[in-house]
């Protein structure tokens, strides 16, 4: 959790406590006229230490208020992933715009490079797959929270490696919820070892009202590199409405791809553990 979210959240609590008047602060859906940007290439690609195939999808951006999840796929591109140990895989377009690896196996410690040639332009990016950090254990405790809201605090226990510069992402899912629904109101959590280098970690996920005794919670700990962290954190900045609303300068996430496409390419390790809530 960055200081900024924390601050905003606390500011909200604080104002609620200060006086009832801020409770009057209201939200309403408004209509805003937005320009339509011309379609822009989007590249979304990952390589992990799990079993392949790994996918790279190419698509185009669309109009902002267009009521559709359909974004035109980009076909007939040459998509190649290589690593620094000489592995090379030309990805195969299986469905329109989705390219899958044929033989590549991601291995921690290696650097992967994506190269996409589409419409005569080349887009490159590389990402290092960090050494894997394992979850030691998960535990959950029931809590009564702010304003009496109950739920579970789920702690993800692991040890941060001794060198500074580890970047993490945690995904948590519940067996009773669809994957897109988060258990703690946040899509994913991102953090670094900037203040916790080399320590035994107990990262807390505050699961809310939508989890219940008997649910199985699955937690993935992703070890990501700096460029992926920068991408995800700047992505989170614009996806989270409280951040984007008070940011002085919302901007497209920082990409590691050359030649100006949207999206990113990341290589990371994943460790998964599950716990049944009591």
């Amino acid at each position: 959790m960055t200081m900024k979210t924390l601050f905003l959240k606390s500011a909200l609590y604080a104002s609620i406590l200060v006086a009832g008047f801020v409770l009057l602060a209201c939200e309403k859906v408004v209509s805003i006229d937005l320009n339509n940007a011309s379609p822009h290439l989007v590249i979304d690609g990952t390589v992990t230490d799990q079993q392949g195939p790994y996918s790279v999808t190419l698509s185009l951006s669309g109009d902002y208020f267009e009521p559709s999840l359909y974004f035109p796929p980009v076909s007939n591109a040459l998509v190649v992933v290589t690593d620094n140990q000489g592995q090379r895989d030309t990805l195969k377009e299986t469905t329109s715009g989705t390219y899958l690896s044929t033989k590549l196996q991601g291995i921690a410690g290696r650097t992967y490079t994506l190269s996409v040639i589409s419409d005569g332009k080349e887009y490159d990016g590389s990402s290092s797959m960090p050494q894997k950090v394992l979850i030691d254990s998960l535990y959950a405790i029931q809590r009564t929270g702010f304003g009496g809201e109950s739920g579970y605090d789920i702690y993800v226990m692991f040890r941060d490696p001794t060198e500074l510069g580890n970047y993490y992402r945690i995904n948590a899912r519940s067996s009773t919820l669809i994957p897109a629904d988060s258990i703690d109101g946040r899509r994913y959590r991102l953090f670094t070892d900037k203040l916790t280098n080399g320590n035994e970690m107990a990262e807390r996920i505050r699961a809310g009202r939508n989890v219940n005794p008997g649910d199985t919670i699955t937690v993935e700990l992703l070890s990501i590199d700096k460029s992926a962290y920068e991408y995800y954190s700047t992505l989170r900045d614009i996806l989270s409405s409280d951040r984007s609303a008070t940011s002085l300068s919302p901007a497209n996430p920082i990409t590691n791809l050359s030649n100006g496409p949207l999206g990113y390419f990341a290589a990371f390790t994943i460790d998964t553990k599950s716990i049944v809530l009591k």
Partner: peptide
């Protein structure tokens, strides 16, 4: 700064500035 477009990453809608 408001978005002038939208795109899909990781199954989610992302604003395009």
């Amino acid at each position: 700064t408001f978005p002038s477009g939208n795109y899909l990453i990781d199954g989610r809608l992302v604003p395009y500035y």
